[in-house]
């Protein structure tokens, strides 16, 4: 089993509903965010192109944060989800430095916090909060090993990319183009 997410950049309008849903679902402290919207403008007027992406932890197959962690608080759970155990985290910041996506932050309580792919929802067979609320239905979640899952279906016959694959992290958030 390998959980992954595919996000259709052609459908995303950048409304940030996923950001708010995550903050509500996961009780993210005010002023912090586990996911965010990036708008990339490329080219020079009048030849300009816009890409909108909902970004978060890439739940990498080769997660540098897990390698950097001196206590084992950062770890990989079933399905390739990268998580942090607050009671083992000393707040040294090594994982934050190691993440090419800057997807982690220091929770006001001291430990390091990040996207969990809403594994508490996934366990119950639900989609992560961000996927569930998306008004344009541009996000797909599921098991990459299962060819009939939402994410596998979405990636069929589409061109897609991952972010900073040259970092060698083998990220598992895919952007459909």
């Amino acid at each position: 089993m390998r959980y992954a997410m595919a996000i259709d950049t052609n459908k995303c309008v950048g409304c940030a509903d996923c950001v708010v849903a995550c903050q509500t679902e996961n009780n993210v402290p005010v002023g912090y965010a586990r996911d965010w919207i990036a708008e990339i403008v490329a080219g020079t007027y009048p030849n300009v192109e816009l890409e909108i992406r909902s970004e978060r932890c890439n739940h990498c197959d080769n997660p540098p944060c897990v390698r950097a962690c001196p206590t084992g608080a950062s770890h990989v759970v079933e399905g390739g989800i990268v998580k942090v155990t607050p009671e083992e985290c000393i707040g040294c910041g090594a994982c934050i430095q190691s993440c090419p996506y800057d997807a982690r932050f220091s929770h006001p309580d001291g430990y390091v916090d990040k996207c969990t792919f809403c594994d508490h929802r996934v366990k119950k067979g639900q989609d992560p909060a961000c996927v569930a609320v998306c008004p344009t239905k541009c996000m797909y979640f599921g098991d990459l090993d299962d060819p009939s899952s939402d994410v596998s279906e979405a990636m069929k016959n589409r061109k897609y990319k991952a972010l900073a694959p040259e970092a060698g992290t083998d990220p598992h958030i895919f952007y459909l183009m």
Partner: peptide
């Protein structure tokens, strides 16, 4: 030219606008 903007207003302390977690 490529310009990237985080429009959702991600302003995680010590992460944005640039990383400064170690002092």
């Amino acid at each position: 030219m490529t310009e990237e903007l985080l429009t959702s207003g991600r302003m995680n302390p010590n992460i944005d606008p640039y990383l400064n977690i170690w002092h």
